[in-house]
């Protein structure tokens, strides 16, 4: 049963022109699809092909292409295989459709992506802040946010100056390379 379903799905997906289909191995499929067609694909996968479990939605910031990549990982408990549906949306304004009506777990992932990347999901039940409640800066997971620079500006490092170091400095030695010099 599960094998037939897989074959049926492979055939079906290969025939659809707007998507790119790639079977990585017996349990992993990668699909690249236009953003406007993704909800329909997910509906098809869930309703007709038993991909009922939304394992995760991942977001990747391809800043050089000015795009966000959204990856929907859905799993079928019947065929034991995972479809990763990739789609790319423009980084500006970074708005996309929620798939909450198909997959309840989407609410968490969409909220998380909204908070960390600034992608707004229309129709998502909850776009409120969650982890970074008191953060007013830019979405931190964006590539143009430099967290190390932020930390260096915001916090003071503990400056150690123990006796052994003073002794070495008295002899003409001392710190030559700090860790931040080689990062």
């Amino acid at each position: 049963m599960s094998k037939e379903l897989n074959l049926w799905l492979d055939d079906l997906l290969k025939d659809i022109k707007i998507i790119q289909f790639k079977r990585k191995n017996s349990r992993r499929v990668r699909i690249d699809i236009a953003p406007e067609a993704l909800p329909a694909l997910l509906e098809l996968l869930q309703g007709r092909a038993s991909y009922v479990h939304l394992s995760a939605i991942s977001c990747v910031d391809w800043i050089e292409e000015n795009e966000f990549e959204l990856v929907y990982h859905v799993w079928s408990y019947e065929t034991n295989s995972l479809v990763s549906a990739h789609t790319r949306i423009s980084r500006e304004p970074g708005v996309y459709l929620s798939v909450y009506d198909l997959y309840t777990p989407a609410a968490f992932f969409e909220r998380d992506i909204h908070e960390m990347f600034g992608v707004y999901f229309e129709g998502s039940p909850d776009m409120e802040k969650f982890i970074l409640t008191e953060w007013n800066g830019p979405p931190p997971m964006r590539k143009d946010f430099d967290s190390e620079a932020f930390v260096n500006q915001t916090f003071n490092w503990e400056e150690y100056h123990p006796q052994w170091l003073k002794d070495i400095e008295a002899e003409g030695g001392g710190i030559t390379t700090r860790p931040e010099d080689v990062r």
Binding site: I168, E171, G173, G174, I175, T176, T177, R178, P179, R183
Partner: peptide, 11 residues
């Protein structure tokens, strides 16, 4: 963790 600093030790 950027924990290591190199120290020049005369002698």
């Amino acid at each position: 963790n950027a924990a290591i600093t190199m120290i020049k030790i005369p002698g």
